[in-house]
Every structure is written in structure tokens, then in C-alpha cells.
Simulated scan of single mutants.
Amino acid sequence: MATLQALSSVLVLLLLAQHERTARASTLEDTCTVVASGAGEEAAHHYYDFCVKTLGADPASATADELGLVVIVVRIAMATAKATGDRIARLQASEMSPRRRLVLDECANDYALTVRWLGRASMDLAAGGDEDRLTEAATLLEHVRGMPARCDKAFVLWAGERTPLTDADHELNGVTVLALKILRHCLNDGAK
């Protein structure tokens, strides 16, 4: 009888552990479904895929809650901004045109500021669910959103030519918007 009770207890624990893993995995999918809603059907499908792909790149997303997912996305955005800043630095090193150099200097400063903003947002988010900190993180993410486009426009206006930034450099905007959407959902759920 004791063996049967022990076996039953182990089975219950295994089922609870499996349920917890399933609940966490569905957090990622549920969150991506929520942030993709509101767009047209084709756009929602694309955005859902982008969300799952982006978050799925980090193994921690499998066990993260919604706020944890925002932290993951902000860290991805920070890595993207750093990589773009490094690319801009390489372009600066070989640039001979004074106009292009001026624009690259401006973009480099903007991306350095972007990395700092994302670092502060990451710290605010990692501190937990304090609404003031989450609101500050959202404000910082709003400042970051559109950074690649601002750099692109500077090239057109100041250098009179297309930007040397690539599609990979423009990923920053998509990732930042994803972080904002998830964070806004966290803030709205907390207000209820």
C-alpha cells in the first residue's frame, strides 16, 4: 500500500511539473498572440512569427513570465544596438567624405545613447513589477523606437545619399516595438 501511495505521489508531482512547463511554454505563445492581435490577418501572422522567432532565440524564454519576456527582448535590442554601433564605428574608421563622416558621428552618438537607454530599461524591468519603473522603461523604449530611421534620414538630409545601414541594423526597430507591445500589455494587465 505504501508503495502505491509513493508511486501516486510521484505521478502527481510529474504531472504538476509537466503542467508548469506547458504553462510557461504557452506564456510565450500566448504573449505573441496578444501582441500580434489588432493587425490585419497577414500582418498578425507575420508579427506572431517574428515574436516567436525572436523570443525563441533565447532559451530562457521557455520559462519566463510576461515581464521576463520583455527583459529578454530588451537585451536582444541592446545587443542589436551594440552591433550596429560597432558597424558604424568600422564605417567611421574608413570614411573619407566629411559629410558622411559627420552623419556617421551623429549616428554613432545616437546608438551609444540608445545602448544606455536600453541598459536603463533593462535594469528597470529586472527590478520587478513596480509600475513607475515599468513606465520609465516604456518611455526609454519609446526614445529608442525609430532610431534606425532617424539615422537613415540624417544620411539623406546631410549627406544627400542612402544610408549604409543594412536590414540587420534595422532589426532594432522591430525588436523595440515588440518589447513595447509586451510591456504595454503587462502594464494594462496590472492596471486591471
Rank of each mutant, 00 (worst) to 15 (best):
C32M: 14
V12L: 15
L102Y: 02
A36C: 05
P59I: 14
M96D: 14
A159V: 15
M96H: 08
V144I: 06
A39P: 01
P148W: 11
R99P: 11
A179F: 11
D65K: 08
L183H: 12
K53G: 02
D65T: 11
D189V: 14
H45N: 07
D132Q: 15
L67I: 10
L69H: 01
G160H: 15
V144G: 04
A23N: 01
G38F: 06
A179L: 13
L69I: 07
D65E: 06
H143Y: 05
F50Y: 15
P148L: 11
L134F: 10
A179I: 12
D152E: 15
V12E: 14
A44T: 06
A121C: 05
A168Y: 04
R133N: 10
E20G: 00
L134V: 10
Q5G: 04
A168L: 02
E20I: 01
R145L: 13
L11T: 09
D49K: 13
L180Q: 14
A36D: 02
T54L: 06
A17M: 03
T63P: 00
I76H: 02
N109D: 13
A64Y: 06
A64L: 08
D152I: 08
E136H: 10
T33G: 12
L7M: 06
Y48N: 08
R21H: 02
A138L: 11
V71R: 02
V70H: 01
L183W: 11
C51N: 13
D189H: 10
R116H: 07
R90W: 03
W158E: 11
R99C: 06
Y47H: 12
Q18R: 02
R184M: 10
D124C: 08
A36Q: 03
I88A: 00
E41Y: 04
F50S: 12
A149S: 15
T139C: 04
T22A: 00
A60P: 01
C32D: 15
G190N: 08
D58K: 06
K153Q: 11
V12M: 11
E142I: 01
A83M: 03
A154W: 02
T166E: 10
R184P: 04
T163Q: 12
H19L: 01
D58F: 01
L11F: 09
A23G: 00
L16A: 03
L113G: 07
A93M: 13
V74T: 04
A137K: 07
A23S: 05
E142D: 10
A93V: 10
E66W: 07
P164G: 12
A39W: 02
A191E: 15
A81Q: 08
